[in-house]
Design a binder for these strands. Structure first.
Length: 359
DNA sequence: GAGTCGTGGCC
DNA sequence: TGGCCAAGACT
């Protein structure tokens, strides 16, 4: 057992926290029943994403794809469109692949052991523990950022929560707690406490239901925990993008590669180009069999900040003749139909500036 | 172990 | 205003 647990009153803590949760939990769409599929979808959407952001996406997604079978049979592009704006798009592609596995290997029923769930694409230790405990009420740990924050304060653990080894330490601790109470309610209670009371900044210790158990509170060090190493700032990339229009009023869009950043989403032709003359963009167009645009002008600048990159995009518009010999990833679409393709937010900004403003 | 992979809200 | 964050997983 972890040495920090020596003076910790495990049973009292588990009971008091679980009682608090049952009286104070929020009404959330994925808490209306115990459907393992819905809980799974919610857990994937909630990865690194706020509850308020997820709620409308979750409701739309479940009405579009109510069962694993429905999601398995959907077009990938339809799934990505439903995910548009949520970010981390590999979550959507991995979820659909995993749901296909569940449909084929488990008859469409989400398996109920951590070992089996862990094999599914996009499901790691946290999500596997969350599904098995929340949907099937099994005594597994589900350690996310909330749980590490709460437990680091309760036990004054100063390990860097950015490290994988730290998460494992907290998993061991939670495993030794969750067997003493209702696993579904207890795991959700830890996260709910982190979301509502034991918040990253200015935690509400005065109204905390387990303040008597909290070592950080006793020592007055709650604002120093959890410990998290600073990450380095994102790297800037100068980009040039071009909205090319033909004589029919169509614009040229391009599907991004199958892997990497924003995989399989659509965009306007663009490339990294920090030149003043736009030579890289011209080379890029030439490589795709596109003639020099008859007119081209710089109409906008778009900044888009990712976790690890900043795109500084100079946006151009140009006229070009329709060319039959487009390479596979390029496509002419009517302006009104651009909205039916999944675009990252960076290029939605271009749509707003260039396409919609023209109408 | 350290990078990669999005987005919007917050103070 | 911009750095930091929010229910992580994959390579």
């Amino acid at each position: 057992m972890d040495k920090q647990l020596n003076e910790f009153n495990i049973e009292a803590f588990c009971n008091e926290l679980t009682d608090w949760y049952r009286k104070n939990k929020r009404d959330l769409p994925w808490r209306e029943d115990q459907d393992p599929y819905k809980i799974w979808v919610s857990e994937i959407m909630l990865q690194q994403t706020r509850v308020d952001t997820v709620i409308p996406y979750f409701n739309r997604f479940i009405s579009l794809f109510p069962t694993p079978k429905a999601l398995a049979e959907a077009e990938e592009e339809t799934v990505l469109k439903a995910w548009e704006g949520l970010g981390y798009y590999s979550r959507a592609r991995n979820l659909q692949q995993a749901v296909k596995e569940v449909t084929e290997d488990y008859g469409g029923v989400v398996p109920d052991t951590k070992k089996e769930i862990l094999k599914l694409k996009g499901v790691g230790p946290y999500t596997a523990g969350a599904i098995t405990s929340i949907a099937y009420n099994k005594p597994e740990a589900a350690v996310d950022g909330n749980v590490m924050r709460v437990m680091s304060r309760l036990l004054t653990i100063y390990d860097d929560i950015g490290k994988v080894t730290t998460r494992k330490r907290f998993e061991d601790i939670v495993e030794s707690l969750v067997i003493h109470t209702n696993p579904s309610d207890f795991n959700q209670a830890l996260m709910e406490l982190g979301a509502l009371i034991c918040t990253p900044r200015s935690p509400s210790c005065l109204i905390c239901p387990v303040q008597e158990h909290c070592s950080a509170r006793a020592e007055g060090v709650q604002d120093l925990l959890p410990v998290k190493a600073k990450k380095k700032p994102p790297k800037a990339k100068a980009m040039k993008a071009v909205v090319l229009e033909n004589e029919k009023g169509q614009v040229l869009i391009e599907k991004r590669p199958d892997t990497g950043l924003l995989a399989k989403l659509w965009q306007f032709p663009n490339c990294e180009d920090d030149s003043r003359t736009g030579e890289e963009l011209r080379r890029y167009l030439y490589e795709r069999g596109l003639q020099e645009p008859q007119t081209i002008e710089n109409v906008q600048h778009v900044r888009h900040v990712f976790s690890h990159i900043v795109w500084e995009i100079d946006v151009f518009t140009g006229k070009i003749e329709e060319d039959a010999a487009l390479c596979g990833t390029l496509k002419w679409v009517n302006k009104e139909e651009v909205d039916t393709y999944p675009f990252p937010v960076s290029h939605q900004k271009i749509i707003d500036y260039v396409i919609k403003e023209e109408k």
